[in-house]
Design a protein around this nucleic acid. Structure first.
Lengths: 311, 311
DNA sequence: CCTGGCATG
DNA sequence: CATGGCAGG
């Protein structure tokens, strides 16, 4: 039995199962109206395990359309947060269509934009820096993957910063095969970089790693973002010498999400997914101060995350 | 020299000429910021020349998307106006997507909808009646023209009511040839009907007939809605025994428009076009009480028009 | 500058 | 249920 679009959306948000009769589904739905279990991000810790002070603050935000996000005063939040580097994903905006409010932002004199070659208003990432990186590159050096404006890499004196918008496997997992090759190639790219200098990877990695990383793991095992293949891809990345900074610091923290579908009032109910990460080379771990989820910041279906690092 | 889209829009709204150097255009533009010349529709006259009282009130409105128009409270205005028959054009809405507010409207128990066969959300007209017509038909009986939901004909005891959304010749006049065949065939359809019973034709006829019928006739002679061909089509319709009711009553009334492009603040400046008409069979002329332009009613880029008739 | 649809998430 | 782009006006 083929399922319609509505049903798939419900499953993605609520974790309904793919199988089972309609009656069963209805019975399951009745359980919903409980008070939402929220997550309060604790105060920022500004010193690392080895007692150094944080001297690098990085924020990452999937803005789901930069122009709409600017109109919703996303930049006010950024000015308040005041990170050293701001990484944005899903800008959906060609360079010439960027709002002046962001292109002229004096706090970030060094701005880098990657956009989709073909599809206008699709994908796109950005990096805004207070200090100029030694070098900035685009993509991961593989023809097949570098047409959609998904990766910017900036080299700083003591580390690389990579921001990424990882391809969504899409409804019906029509792009899961592509995603698997992406995961392999991206991992190779990061490992290569990591051999030169330690790196920080941030962005929308489009996967909830473990069951703790989304509200409804049960019903989403066949949905984009929580398939065994995508989860395994992330596991393999970590196995290559990287650390999920948030999970490292808060191994048992449930209900901490960075994405909520706009549908079904998911954000108010905190029916979400942790899709946005700061992944660090293991060698940077001693300098890790904190990895934050700014889940009160509005303006997108993702919230921003912030990393405090001593480098 | 090929003109861009922006230039065409400006011409359509402001009447700029197609020829002439850029410098000339700029000089012309400088004249604009005068106070707008508005048009105050006089009070409704409710008796005909032959001293009969109006007993049939018909309103026609190109709503430019029925769903948006309903949200903008177009139906509140309709309830206030309270016509016996309401004709709508550009509903852009399939029958199953109609808002309940209009499908369940008790004032109009008899409702008729025509929609485009292929293109969803394109064209579409409607007729809502307090009393049931003797018969309702769709289209004009010509295969080529009846796929776009442009015409509904209702037979009442003493007259036919035809509401139409005449095809726009489009930017660059790419559909002017089609429009010319439409004009011929539609005129034949109306003449045929007129032989049975007199008729009222209302709707968006997508032509400003004479120079008095739009703000900037000079610059629009090559633009859709004011080409010689379209104007001639309307002239020929009148020559077939029909009357433009508004112009019949107010032969010298300038600045009376029913459409203003959303662009360039045209409505505030009353830079408009008279595109919506009540056209009557000559034999109904003695019963004509008034033909009104309700240019204060908002909710579309067209305003409604209302006819008072003694039948 | 608005509409409604579409692809995408 | 949002985004941006598109055709149409």
């Amino acid at each position: 039995m083929k399922r319609g679009k509505k049903a798939e959306e419900a499953a993605a948000a609520d974790g309904e199962n793919d199988t089972g009769a309609a009656a069963t589904k209805k019975a399951k739905k009745a359980k919903e109206p409980e008070a939402p279990i929220l997550y309060e991000d604790p105060p920022d810790k500004m010193t690392s395990k080895d007692e150094r002070s944080a001297n690098m603050k990085i924020t990452s935000w999937n803005v789901d359309g930069l122009r709409a996000w600017v109109k919703k005063n996303g930049l006010d939040w950024v000015r308040e947060e005041d990170p050293d580097v701001l990484c944005l994903q899903e800008t959906k905006c060609s360079e010439k269509a960027l709002p002046a409010e962001i292109t002229s932002m004096p706090e970030y004199p060094h701005k880098y934009w990657a956009v989709s070659d073909d599809k206008e208003g699709y994908s796109g990432v950005a990096m805004l820096c207070k200090t100029e990186p030694l070098k900035v590159t685009y993509g991961i050096g593989k023809e097949d993957h570098d047409k959609e404006g998904r990766v910017i890499t900036a080299e700083f004196p003591s580390f690389y910063l990579v921001t990424a918008y990882v391809p969504n496997s899409s409804r019906g997992l029509v792009r899961l095969d592509y995603r698997k090759t992406w995961d392999v190639d991206f991992r190779a790219y990061l490992s290569e970089l990591d051999m030169q200098k330690p790196l920080v990877l941030c962005g929308d990695l489009n996967v909830a790693h473990q069951e703790i990383d989304l509200k409804n793991p049960k019903g989403n095992k066949k949905n984009a973002g929580f398939t065994p293949e995508e989860r395994e891809g992330f596991s393999q990345l970590l196995a290559s010498g990287f650390v999920d900074s948030f999970r490292e610091l808060y191994p048992d923290q449930a209900n901490a999400y960075t994405f909520w579908t706009y549908m079904m009032n998911a954000r108010a109910k905190n029916v979400g997914w942790r899709l946005d990460y700061f992944v660090l080379s293991s060698s940077l771990l001693p300098g890790l101060c904190d990895s934050k989820i700014r889940n009160k910041a509005m303006g997108s279906d993702h919230c921003p995350i912030t990393l405090h690092l001593a480098v």
